[in-house]
């Protein structure tokens, strides 16, 4: 009987610039159902952080409530973490990001946590363009509470219970685009080749990066009548094209495929290479919305990078906060003394 992962690792695992292997980015052994898509997303986050050579202690991982929101325990075991109240991850993330702007913030949420109870907070964190990566592990149901239909379930889709869902779905990508999100993508837990570079780009992006990851619930929503099952998603996938992420530090000589059709330079100087088949201008918000709708009408799920604005002003820039993380400011900087106060008061007279 094991719930324990062996401590031995492959003796020749590649190391990143920090000297860490992918295994240094692991977390505790998952307690999710065997085959849950969420575990694959954790695997993709581990891979992305390893490849980006992010020091694990420089990451803050946040989540709400749900099977998806449990997953931060299963990756980046040496990072900071916060499980918030159901649907309230964005406000805690905002507080954390304001207090310490130096960490990389990764939020993981579910379709219930985001599109139902957390819809309000979701809308506002987008508006504020908080510098974070926000991943929704979208399985079309409330996995943790035994599979009730969620607000992203398609009309007519039926979970294990067998009753078709009567309500129209919320498309979280469309909503994010509508509310002004500056990085929007959709992916599938079963396609790490697409998901890993998206996560890397989302982390590098300055501002709010949103990835809606279809992530099947094997236990409650992997039925033949479900539109969020492994089989259905695989059969109905369409893509805006493949992509590579080239971090700043890396010389472009690396083994990235040639022949990309577009290059997007992010704020920090890293680059996204896009290899597009259907033509989508990733800088055109309306085009992205249209493409999502058209694919949906044709019965396809459009994945890939949908929209990016690399040069937007994030919340810190809008608020003009100091470069020093707020938590590092001492009484000396925060209370400059009566002379400074007098000067300020005088300037207002």
């Amino acid at each position: 009987m094991t719930y324990i992962r062996p401590n031995f690792r492959h003796p020749a695992l590649p190391r990143n610039e920090l000297g860490y292997t992918r295994r240094d980015y692991e977390g505790a052994l998952s307690t999710l159902c065997a085959g849950c898509g969420h575990d694959s997303v954790s695997g993709a986050i581990i891979q992305a952080c390893f490849e980006l050579a992010i020091p694990p202690h420089r990451v803050g991982k946040l989540s709400g409530i749900g099977c998806s929101s449990k997953t931060p325990t299963y990756f980046l075991g040496r990072s900071h973490g916060f499980n918030t109240v159901h649907g309230r991850m964005p406000s805690v993330a905002t507080g954390a990001a304001l207090a310490n702007r130096e960490l990389v913030y990764i939020g993981v949420s579910g379709d219930g946590d985001t599109a139902s109870i957390g819809l309000g907070q979701f809308a506002h964190v987008i508006r504020r363009n908080l510098d974070m990566l926000y991943i929704v592990e979208n399985n079309g149901c409330y996995g943790l509470t035994k599979g009730q239909d969620s607000a992203t379930a398609d009309v007519g889709s039926a979970s294990k219970k067998g009753v078709p869902n009567p309500y129209p779905p919320i498309d979280l990508c469309a909503m994010a685009l509508d509310l002004g999100a500056t990085f929007v993508a959709r992916s599938f837990s079963g396609d790490k080749r697409q998901l890993v570079p998206l996560i890397k780009a989302g982390i590098a992006h300055r501002g709010f990066a949103f990835i809606d990851v279809i992530s099947p619930c094997v236990t409650f929503n992997n039925t033949p009548q479900s539109t969020k099952s492994y089989d259905y998603v695989r059969e109905h996938l369409a893509s805006t094209g493949t992509l590579d992420f080239v971090p700043v530090r890396q010389e472009i000589t690396a083994d990235y495929e040639a022949g990309y059709t577009e290059e997007v330079t992010l704020h920090d100087g890293s680059v996204i290479h896009l290899y597009k088949e259907p033509d989508l201008d990733v800088h055109d918000r309306h085009a992205a919305l249209r493409a999502i709708r058209e694919h949906k009408e044709a019965g396809r799920i459009l994945t890939g990078l949908l929209y990016v604005d690399p040069d937007s002003a994030d919340l810190h820039e809008v608020l003009q906060t100091v470069k020093t993380p707020l938590r590092d400011l001492t009484a000396k900087e925060l209370c400059p003394g009566s002379r400074a106060l007098d000067a300020i008061n005088a300037s207002k007279r």
Binding site: R5, P6, L13, L29, C36, D39, S40, G43
Partner: peptide, 11 residues
């Protein structure tokens, strides 16, 4: 589903 890939301690 990749579950086995992700869990395998020795890749």
């Amino acid at each position: 589903c990749d579950a086995c890939v992700d869990i395998c301690p020795t890749d």
